[in-house]
Computed example of a mutant assay.
Amino acid sequence: MLTGKQKRFLRSKAHHLSPIFQVGKGGVNENMVKQISDALEARELLKVSILQNFDGDKNEAAEKLALGTKAELVQLIGNTIVLYRESVENKQIKLP
């Protein structure tokens, strides 16, 4: 579980990132969760955007992604989800 200070630090790091995954009409599926998990191992911090044609609940989609990838939900703002998971082999971010 991240502290408020750590979340604030990660939000500042994620501000300049572009979303690399999109949740669309199909919603969250296993393939997407696996790809995001692999990307988290490589990057540790990433953004996922929710498209206009997504008809589910944004909060549920964010929770599914966080649980499926065993990541921390740093932020859900507008249609953007920010996820963080410490990498096992490729550690880059040092939390305060």
Rank of each mutant, 00 (worst) to 15 (best):
1 M>Y: 11
1 M>K: 14
2 L>W: 10
3 T>R: 13
8 R>S: 14
8 R>Y: 11
8 R>C: 09
9 F>C: 11
11 R>A: 09
11 R>Q: 15
12 S>F: 11
13 K>I: 01
14 A>G: 14
17 L>H: 02
20 I>A: 11
24 G>I: 09
29 N>Y: 09
31 N>C: 04
31 N>D: 12
31 N>I: 09
32 M>P: 01
34 K>T: 12
36 I>A: 02
39 A>H: 00
40 L>S: 04
41 E>T: 05
42 A>I: 08
43 R>Y: 10
43 R>G: 02
43 R>I: 04
44 E>L: 00
47 K>C: 04
48 V>W: 04
48 V>D: 04
49 S>R: 10
50 I>F: 06
50 I>L: 08
51 L>E: 13
52 Q>S: 13
52 Q>D: 15
55 D>A: 15
57 D>V: 14
58 K>E: 12
65 L>G: 12
69 T>H: 08
70 K>I: 06
71 A>N: 05
71 A>F: 02
73 L>C: 09
74 V>I: 07
75 Q>C: 06
75 Q>Y: 04
75 Q>W: 02
77 I>T: 10
78 G>P: 08
81 I>P: 02
82 V>W: 05
83 L>V: 00
86 E>T: 05
87 S>A: 11
88 V>A: 12
89 E>W: 06
91 K>G: 02
91 K>R: 15
92 Q>I: 03
93 I>P: 07
93 I>T: 11
95 L>D: 07
